[in-house]
Design a protein around this nucleic acid. Structure first.
Lengths: 237, 237
DNA sequence: ATTTTTAACTTGTGTTTACAAGTTAAAAGT
DNA sequence: ACTTTTAACTTGTAAACACAAGTTAAAAAT
């Protein structure tokens, strides 16, 4: 298998991103100046600037002319309503995941309200259901469907602790570049009442999402139910 | 007043963006190649690429190596759940706006669940309430609060047809660069029942949003209620 | 001591050059 | 007629350079 050479700006981006999310740079800190980053990474300023642009875009830093790059911290809750995956939303500290349906290959039924391309239909679908709990309170219930195209060993990977987004990014260089979503407020169905331990009058947020990636014609789909009653869904965008 | 010179990549970006949203370039069309754009705009490729990067980021185009820049069309519904303002969500065709409270200067009470800086509290707050209707069905009810800092004549401007986002961008070069939001599903309160003509069992989406802009320390706030029952909230991100 | 100026930083914008890599259609070969 | 090769496009990455403009703290002037 031919491995793809990673562009230098991606390497720098991932390095800085990791440093921020691991707390080596903390909120309010100034990152090293662009020229310093050039020296430490052995690249030129346009390359560094491209990496920083991406960090700005993802909400990890803000830049001030004449000042520097200020760390905003790991974007809280990028994920529910924007990019990044739900795990980022609240930190992994209090979040546990219960696998309801283990990743398995299935034929496609339907991708919620989204249309599937012929190519996607040919291949199978990796299907999984998860329940996410915050401090043992069930808050998210999600169904995810991923086309089984060129993703060796995906169904064997653990979905317990890592976010799906990180997993796809790290193992397959798949990045979510955008997508579509449909949002509704519904009353809890019986299944949801059961999972969330709520009454039938409880309003629930339902999100149907199609995630596009940097691999052309590769999208995956998820349906997320959120009980935003106890834990508010807070997100940056 | 010293007017700020617009960077060339911004000029190119706005020109292309306008052409796309006016339908001069249609969905599926290829934009002129980067080299052609260099020639027509009299700038070099990095400048053009910066403009195109922004268009990609805003969801107006996608790029394919070896192919070109493909127009995706005006991003539908960037706004409810991402950037851009609610007007973009459904096209202006069927959308009408009813002003409930005309823009007026008020002292700040509270910016929903968000904290205000001391500087924001010093200045007044431009307050307005709007009801948005799709085909005469009320779908959005929103309260907006904007710090009254250096926004001459804002309260005199018409909020009827234009989106607030476009208005701020065109008159004050204010661009929303990101923000925070809190989302909840609630049961319709009495006021909402009245505005939306729904029963008290109707689940409603409530969005509290803080919008950050390219002007440092300038944010504005809105609270949006959505009746997503009849018209689904569809958005790109 | 206080204020003003300056110099040394920072990021922002823009050009020029070079090559890599994906796409496509015409040209060449079979 | 069909297949293969090639050449001419496209965007992607990266360097090296120059200057503009905002910030800050030390130096100079008052």
């Amino acid at each position: 298998m031919m491995t793809v050479r990673k562009p230098q700006h991606t390497v720098v981006y991932e390095s800085l991103r990791k440093h921020i999310s691991e707390g080596i740079y903390r909120e309010g800190d100034l990152l090293p100046s662009e020229n310093e980053l050039c020296a430490t990474h052995g690249v030129t300023r346009p390359t560094i600037r491209k990496a920083l642009d991406k960090l700005v875009n993802d909400g990890f830093i803000v830049k001030r002319k004449g000042k520097g790059s200020i760390v905003k911290g790991s974007p809280t809750g990028v994920g529910i309503l924007s990019l990044g995956g739900t795990t980022a939303a609240l930190g992994t500290a209090n979040l546990t995941t219960r696998i309801i349906v283990k990743p398995e290959v299935r034929p496609w039924e339907k991708a919620f309200s989204f249309d599937l391309s012929d190519r996607e239909k040919e291949f199978g679908c990796i299907y999984l259901e998860r329940l996410r709990l915050i401090n043992d309170d069930p808050v998210f219930y999600d169904i995810t469907m991923i086309p089984n195209i060129n993703l060796p060993r995906l169904s064997a990977l653990s979905f317990e602790n890592k976010s799906l987004f990180n997993l796809l990014r790290q193992h397959y260089q798949l990045e979510v570049t955008g997508g579509e979503q449909k949002i509704q407020a519904i009353l809890a169905t019986e299944k949801i009442q059961d999972y969330f331990k709520v009454s039938k009058d409880q309003p629930i947020i339902q999100l149907d999402r199609k995630m596009d990636t940097n691999r052309p014609d590769f999208s995956f789909y998820s349906q997320v139910y959120c009980n935003a009653d106890k834990y508010a869904l807070i997100g940056t965008f």
